[in-house]
Design a protein around this nucleic acid. Sequence first.
DNA 1: TGTGAAAGCCTTTAACG
DNA 2: CGTTAAAGGCTTTCACA
Lengths: 163, 163
Amino acid sequence: MDRLDKKILRLLQEDSTLAVADVAKKVGLSTTPCWRRIQKLEEEGVIQRRVAILNPQKINTRVNVFVSIRTNAHSHEWLKRFSEVIQEFPEVVEFYRMSGDVDYLIRVVVPDIAAYDAFYKKLIAKIEIRDVSSAFAMEQIKYTTEMPLDYMVLDKETNSSAA
Amino acid sequence: MDRLDKKILRLLQEDSTLAVADVAKKVGLSTTPCWRRIQKLEEEGVIQRRVAILNPQKINTRVNVFVSIRTNAHSHEWLKRFSEVIQEFPEVVEFYRMSGDVDYLIRVVVPDIAAYDAFYKKLIAKIEIRDVSSAFAMEQIKYTTEMPLDYMVLDKETNSSAA
DNA sequence: TGTGAAAGCCTTTAACG
DNA sequence: CGTTAAAGGCTTTCACA
């Protein structure tokens, strides 16, 4: 991966409907090499997928809840079961194993507090959890799927050659 | 929005490279009406954008940090400034105003703890914050841009008519 | 690796039930 | 609102530098 791949990724992270020819123009390439690069980035799994991002307002999932979970069952078995349970819920859009005093953190999207309560009841009915604490977001000020590309490790461009 | 729009959204949330004809087939429509529906969903802003999702591993942003922020400057001015500062950082991918004892919650993506420390220093150099506490994720178990569509409010399908 | 052009597929429009 | 079919554009491939 080099500077041009990075430019391509930057563009496609913003808008994946861009035509290959347009991407090519913007990065200063003609279509075929640009197409080949995009292809390669997909094969290598750098580009994982292309998706439509929906407006949460319009689909009635405007409330974000962060749920901190503590457990005493630190077994592999419990985590496996917990994982499976969580994956089943489409309301859970993010799920992290944490360091520190909280064991797991999940982000849940729902229309309102009542729906969160229903979700919560369904969750604790399915698996035993020592301690759950919920924090409600009043407002989502920023949300993006664009990752910073500043940390990308680029191949040394010692000259014009590459692998 | 009706049941068919919902199906279309479900498909495009998963994979926006699907050809209109394929979407049409899957929802049991022919291409033109399906195309018109997708067009409308975009115009109405239900579909906000189409983006490429990158693999965090490959672009060296595998570490997620959740930063809880408390402030005593509860003024509109302070929030405006804070917002602007945060938006500037590509490492901040989510930003919420919270209820409860934490005022703001942000998710930061970086390659490692050292990079987080550098980010942290840049942040506090730019704006005064009363209290910052960082929680590191050891593992991202689930991350999806797919929102649950179960809460969507559908038009009453009393018969076959619509607006 | 890059260029330019040809082939084929998809999107988009139009004409019509 | 649905269908079928034609037009135009984009992706993808190929031959070549």
